[in-house]
Design a protein around this nucleic acid. Structure first.
Lengths: 365, 365
DNA sequence: GCTGGCACTCTGCCTTCCAGAGTGCCAGGG
DNA sequence: CCCTGGCACTCTGGAAGGCAGAGTGCCAGC
C-alpha cells in the first residue's frame, strides 16, 4: 500500500510524462537505489544472511540513514528485486535482483597478473587434448570454488586434419578421424568383402585430398561422388566406409563433457540434501549439461540465474558459461555452476580468463 | 565393570582351559549371539536407527526374551562388535561387527532371473568400449543405489591387437595402439627427420609381427633389438617411435575410471555435509579411486569396511569391489562405494553379477 | 540359563520465554 | 520535498525447562 502510493508520487514528481502506470520497469531506479541493491547483493553473497538496513549503512558508506535505506528497500522489494523471507527479517536478492546486478551493477573482475601467470603455466603443462580439458576443468573449479564444466572441442566446428584407414582383418577396417583440435575418433568398419590394400590406399589418399582441412559438417557433401571414382567391384566397400565416416561426423552424441569440483557443492547452503540432490542428478546427465552449455550465446559470456535455467533441478543455481576456441571462433563451451548467491564478478572473471587461455593453448598445439 | 566380570565368569564356565584372558577373539560367540548380531545389522541397515532389545525380539523370532538378548548384546559390545551411541540408546554395529557379518553371517544374495535378464539386455546394447563401461557404471549405480566405479580394462593385462603408424607430416607420425579389449591409444611422435613411407611400412609390419597378440608388458622386451634390423640412417626414427610406444605401454597414469550415482550420496546419513564432502573429494581424485580398486584382491570379491579403507575420507564408507575380465583373468576392476550401513548381501550380489556379465560382453566383442 | 520386574538414564520433542534484529510508519527538520 | 530520529510492532533463533518413551543394567526367582 504505502510504497505503492509513494511510487506514484515520485513518478509524477520526477517526470510528468511517465504517467502510464504498471508498465514494467517504468519507474527508473535512481542511483542510490541501485547502490543499495548492489550493497545488498555484495553483503548477502559474503555473509549468506539476510541483510538489514542498519548493517548496510555501517558497512557501506552510503551517506544516508538506515531509515532512508529502508524506504529504498521497500521500493526495491515492490519492484521484485529483493525479497524478505519473513516479516522483520533482512532482505535477500531475488533472481531478478541478481539479474540487474549482473547486467548493470557489476563489472567483470579481471584476474590479477600472478593469477594469469599461474593459469597460463598450469595449462601449459598439458600433454594432449584430454589432459588440456582435464586441467582446464580442475583449474576452473579451483579458481571459482564451484562446479566446473568443460565441453570437449566439438566435432561440428572443427576441421579434418587427417583420415586414416587401417586394415585389421580381411574384411575389417579401422577408421580414424583426427581433427585440428587434436580430437581423435575411431570406428570399426565391417566391410562386405575382403578389402585390397591398394583400394584402401587409394581411398585413403582421395579422402585426405578432398576432406583435409575442411569443416566436418561440409565433408559429406564433398565426398558424395567419391564411389563413382572407383571400379564397380570396390564401390560397396567405399560406400560402407563412407557411411561410417559420415556417421562419425554426424554423431552429436559423442559430444563429451568433463566435470570437476562437485565437492564444492557442500558449501551450497543450509537446507542441504534438498538443494544438492537435484544438482548432483543434473551433473550426472551429460545430456542436461550439454543442453545447458548449448544455451550459451556464441559470443560473449552467458549468465543464467536461478529460474532462468530451463532444467528444473538447477532452478536454485546460476550458470556462467562462455565459448572458447582455437581461433576467433568458439569450438566448444565451458562454464561454472554455483548457487545463485555467488560472486558474479569474480566467477565471470575466472571463466573468461580460463576460456581465453585454453583457446590460446589449443591454437598453439 | 559389570560386563567385565561377567565375561570372565562365562569364559571360565565354558571351558576351563581358556584362562588366558584378553586374547583377541578367544571367546567363541555362540550361535545365538551371532543370530543377534545378524539381526542387529539387518535391522540397523533397514531403519538407520539404533536397535534395542525389545524391537529385536519382536521383529525376529529369536525365541528368547528381551532380557536375554540384552545380555548377549552386552557381550557383543564388550567384544567390540556393536556400540551404544549413548547410555540407554539402542545398539549400532561397529566396523568389526559388519566385518563379522560379512565374513560369517551373510550370504551373497543372487540376482533374480528377471534381474539377470535385464542386466544382460542392458549391457548388450553397448556399441563400443566406452559405451560398455558407461552402461556398466550406470547400471551398477542403479542396482545398488550407491556410487559405482568402473575401471577401464587396463592396458597392462591386455594384449596387442594392432599397431598402426600414420605419417601426418614429413616428420610427424601418429602411433595408434589397439588392444584386445577394444581400447585405443594414440600418440603423436615427433621424429628427428623426414620419415620415408617405406621405412614406416617396414616398421609397421615388423611391429605387428612381433608384438601382435602379446601382452602389453612383454612387448618392450620383444622389440628391444628391432632398431638393429634397420639401416643405420633409419635407426633414430625407429628408436623414437619405439620410445613413444614403450611410454604408452608403461603409462599407468592412463588408467581411466568412470563414475556414476553420486546423487545417491544424498541418502547417506543425517550429519550431511560432514560425511559427504570428503567422499566427494575422494571421488574426484582418479588416483584415489585407482588405488582403492587396486587394493581389490585379484580373485574373489573384496569388501573394505569403514576404517579398513586406507584413505581417510572414506573411513565412514564401505567399498565392495571385484575384478572382471574377458576370459578367466581379470583385466580391470569395478565396485561400489556406500555407507558402512549398507545392504551387504544385496550389494555384493549386484556387483558380482554385473562383473560377470561385463566380462562376457568383453569376451564376445 | 532364562525371564519378568524394576529403577534409572538419556534422547527427542514440545512448549515457553526472551533478547535481538529488523521493520513500517510518523512527525519534525534542513 | 526528501531525509532522519524515534517508536511500536513483529518475527526468528536459541536457551531453558518439562515430559513421554525407549532402552538399559541388574536382581531375584523359576
Amino acid at each position: 500500500m504505502f510504497s505503492e502510493r509513494r511510487a506514484d508520487e515520485r513518478k509524477s514528481d520526477n517526470r510528468q510524462l511517465d504517467s502510464r502506470l504498471d508498465v514494467r520497469d517504468v519507474r527508473p531506479l535512481d542511483d542510490r537505489k541501485l547502490a543499495v541493491l548492489r550493497a545488498i547483493v555484495q553483503d548477502y553473497v559474503g555473509t549468506e544472511e539476510p541483510v538489514g538496513s542498519k548493517a548496510l549503512v555501517e558497512r557501506h558508506s552510503l551517506g544516508v540513514s538506515p531509515a532512508t535505506v529502508r524506504n529504498d528497500m521497500a521500493a526495491l522489494e515492490e519492484d521484485g528485486y529483493i525479497h524478505q523471507p519473513h516479516t522483520s527479517a533482512g532482505r535477500i536478492p531475488t533472481d531478478k535482483g541478481y539479474r540487474l546486478f549482473v547486467d548493470r551493477l557489476a563489472e567483470v573482475k579481471p584476474m590479477s597478473a600472478p593469477e594469469r601467470r599461474a593459469i597460463r603455466h598450469f595449462l601449459d603443462g598439458a600433454v594432449d587434448l584430454d589432459d588440456t580439458v582435464a586441467r582446464t576443468v580442475r583449474l576452473l573449479a579451483q579458481l571459482t570454488r564451484q562446479v566446473a564444466v568443460v565441453q570437449y572441442p566439438s566435432l561440428s566446428r572443427s576441421t579434418v586434419r587427417h583420415v586414416e584407414l587401417v586394415a585389421l582383418a580381411p574384411a575389417k577396417v579401422m577408421l580414424v578421424l583426427i581433427t585440428n583440435t587434436g580430437r581423435v575418433e575411431q570406428r570399426m568398419v565391417d566391410c562386405p568383402g575382403t578389402v585390397g590394400e591398394n583400394v584402401l590406399a587409394e581411398l585413403r589418399a582421395r579422402l585426405n585430398a578432398r576432406a583435409g582441412g575442411q569443416r566436418l559438417p561440409d565433408v559429406p557433401g564433398l565426398l558424395e561422388d567419391l564411389p563413382a571414382a572407383f571400379e564397380a567391384a570396390d564401390r560397396s566397400v567405399v560406400t560402407t566406409v563412407l557411411a561410417t565416416l559420415f556417421e562419425t561426423l554426424a554423431e552429436q552424441n559423442e559430444e563429451r563433457i568433463m566435470l570437476a569440483g562437485t565437492a564444492n557443492l557442500t558449501r551450497f547452503g543450509h537446507d542441504f540434501p534438498l538443494t544438492i540432490q537435484p544438482v548432483l542428478e543434473a551433473l550426472e546427465e551429460q545430456v542436461i549439461l550439454l543442453r545447458l552449455l548449448g544455451e550459451t550465446a556464441d559470443a560473449g559470456m552467458t549468465v543464467r540465474i536461478g529460474r532462468e535455467n530451463e532444467y528444473e533441478g538447477l532452478n536454485s543455481t546460476s550458470v556462467v558459461s562462455v565459448g572458447y576456441g582455437s581461433g576467433d571462433e568458439s569450438v566448444a563451451k565451458l562454464g561454472v555452476i554455483g548457487p545463485t548467491r555467488m560472486d558474479y564478478p569474480g566467477t565471470m572473471g575466472a571463466v573468461r580468463a580460463v576460456a581465453r587461455y585454453v583457446g590460446q593453448i589449443l591454437a598453439e598445439s
